[in-house]
Design a protein around this nucleic acid. Structure first.
Length: 599
DNA sequence: CCACCAGAGCTC
DNA sequence: AGCTCTGGTGGC
């Protein structure tokens, strides 16, 4: 007897082993692997009596059969295959993503027969609910959960999921589960409990995407356009895409909710905004605003009088003012004013930034002294450009009364302990200077003003979705959290109230209509998929002609860099063309990495 | 991807 | 000598 086994690895095909025992498809087995025969846990993909042809390799024997019945039900098993096709990855990688680590490591899972959990082809349907007020949305969600049976409820952030869980009525909580975010033993217990059929409604963040719930009557995705639904690690799956697939297989109702829709949902469903946010939005031209002088910086950051006075107003009435600048450190670039030399990392060649008098490479993390003399022209006109949060903090400190507390907030310094400290210090009002992350403070305290210090910076990033990112962040800051109706949002820009910014006042339908027209023209998502292939040059240089031959238009954004872009809808042929590069025999050369943007 | 091994660096 | 850590290796 032979079995095709999905062994953890990045090649796309299964490996064949022999076994004297009887095994079923979907069960886990332990197999020897590699030159030293290390033990791996794999899933059986297929069982066959004899081989089609003589293999060119030695066939090893299965060491141990771990399951009598498959640990995943039919829906999740075929979902892993679907994911491998949709995201051009191996099925074993999809399975690793889907299962708790205990399962892929080979821990015991109770031998339940899940074969009766057949996805019923009910009537799949979609519903949308876009509403600026968090309160109104959540109230609607509670109603939906009340009347529905089994379902998953997604929130983009763990803390928001928890606060929604807290407002749920007791009888729902009793049959429901707040999905633990950390994984570990707690996560495994939640997985087993769900699998045993002891819960019907699960609330949580992205981690519950593969909860073994069966059947599924509804799936609710709050703030469906949120970027936290795009996984940050390989394979780069989109939660919304996969959740929609799950809803379709179960014939469930899929509910999209949020403050604004994603490009794909807007294109397909043309949803309407129930009610515009009531808070005020102002646009300020920073070409005309004056800058403060900062030590070692050529061009400072302008703080308009509009932002300053309304911030002080907010602080004086005990509220918080948020000044948001999505740039870390003191300055983002170090350059010579005399000859134009820019400081790059001697190790990896990327542009360095200055943080607390120390030069840091943002890519490899190496640290250097700030140079005093330009190595190119020997002048001493070394200055910083593109000031960041630290510089903004100094500006804020110098502009407002020393009695007013000012704090910074960004990813590297955003611990739970520090957050309570900051909140406590700001309970009578104050200023937070930080990255986009600071918007979460709207949940915990009264934010009277949100100032987008350099609104153009985000929209300028060389990515097709940069304008959407900029727009959605500012839109979120208008609606999120406590008392958004009395909040002012101030957008500082060099091109105020033009282009993408106009939708901020008149509604996101205006933004999407213009943005989608342009993306359609250029063939960007959601009209086409954007496939990125990265790897060492010797691999991508092989792939390029091969894709070319299959009729794909391949772009190479940067010459002499192992990065390729393809705009296509045809993943099937793409997969065929890339297949040879994902055969196990290519191990020595290495494997490329694939990332797909869908909207 | 990931078990395995080798060699580096450290402590006793 | 014995320990942990880090990095290279290559696969049914």
């Amino acid at each position: 007897m032979y079995v095709d086994v999905l062994v953890p690895g990045i090649w796309w095909h299964p490996l064949t082993y022999s076994t004297p025992q009887i095994v079923e498809t979907g069960c886990r087995v332990v197999v020897p692997m590699g030159p030293r025969g290390g033990k791996r846990v794999g899933f059986v993909l297929a069982v066959k009596e004899k081989l089609d042809e003589k293999p060119s390799y030695e066939i090893k024997e299965v060491t141990e059969v771990l399951d009598q019945v498959p640990p995943l039900n039919e829906e999740l098993w075929s979902l892993s295959e679907w994911i491998s096709r949709q995201y051009l990855c191996s099925q074993s990688e999809a399975l690793r993503l889907m299962c708790p680590p205990q399962v892929t490591k080979g821990c015991n899972v109770d031998h339940q027969d899940l074969s009766r959990q057949k996805p019923s082809r009910g009537t799949y349907q979609e519903r949308c609910f876009y509403e600026a007020s968090d309160e109104k949305r959540y109230a609607r969600y509670v109603d939906i959960i009340e009347e529905a049976g089994y379902g998953l409820v997604f929130f983009p952030e763990e803390t928001v999921a928890r606060s929604f869980w807290d407002i749920l009525p007791c009888h729902i909580k009793k049959k429901g589960l707040l999905w633990p975010s950390g994984g570990g033993k707690k996560g495994f217990d939640a997985w087993l409990k769900t699998r045993r059929g002891e819960v019907s409604v699960i609330v949580g963040s992205a981690g519950l995407l593969f909860a073994p719930l069966a059947p599924i009557d509804f799936i609710l995705i709050e703030e469906e356009a949120s970027s936290s639904y795009n996984f940050a690690r390989y394979p780069y799956i989109s939660l919304r895409h996969i959740a929609a697939k799950r809803a379709q297989t179960w014939g469930a109702t899929l509910i999209f909710g949020g403050r604004m829709p994603s490009s794909r949902v807007y294109l397909l469903k043309k949803p309407q905004l129930e009610e515009k946010p009531k808070g005020q939005i102002h646009f300020v031209n920073i070409r005309k605003a004056s800058c403060l002088e900062l030590p070692g910086v050529t061009r400072g950051i302008p703080i308009s009088s509009t932002l300053l006075t309304s911030s002080l107003d907010a602080v004086n009435s005990g509220k918080i003012a948020l000044w948001i600048l999505d740039r870390k450190g003191y300055v983002g670039e170090i350059s010579c004013e005399e000859c134009g030399w820019m400081m790059t990392c001697p190790e990896c060649g990327s542009l360095c930034r200055l943080t607390r008098d120390i030069v840091v490479c943002p890519i490899c993390g190496k640290r250097y002294e700030m140079p005093t003399v330009c190595p190119s022209c020997m002048s001493n006109f070394i200055m910083g450009r593109r000031p960041g949060i630290e510089a903004l903090y100094r500006i804020a400190r110098s502009l407002v009364d020393p009695a007013i507390p000012v704090h910074t907030w960004y990813k590297e310094e955003s611990g739970k302990k520090r957050r309570t400290m900051v909140l406590n210090d700001l309970k009578d009002g104050g200023i937070i200077v930080g990255s986009r992350l600071s918007v979460t403070f709207c949940d915990d305290c009264f934010v009277g003003v949100v100032g987008w210090v350099d609104a153009d910076a985000e929209a300028r990033r060389p990515l097709y979705d940069a304008r959407f990112t900029a727009f959605s962040m500012i839109w979120e800051s208008r609606c999120r959290g406590k008392d958004p109706d009395s909040r002012n949002v101030i957008v500082q820009s060099r091109t105020p109230y033009r282009g993408w910014q106009r939708g901020l006042r008149r509604g996101w339908h205006l933004f999407w209509d213009e943005e989608l027209a342009e993306r359609r023209e250029l063939g960007f998502p959601p009209f086409e998929l954007l496939v990125e292939i990265t790897g060492p040059l010797k691999i991508t240089d092989d792939i390029l002609p091969s894709l070319d031959k299959s009729g794909f238009a391949v772009y190479k954004p940067i010459a002499d860099e192992g990065r390729l872009w393809v705009k296509t809808k045809d993943l099937k042929n793409m997969r065929e063309a890339l297949k040879p590069f994902f055969h196990i025999s290519r191990s020595k050369v290495g494997f490329p990495k694939i990332r797909i943007w869908r909207d």
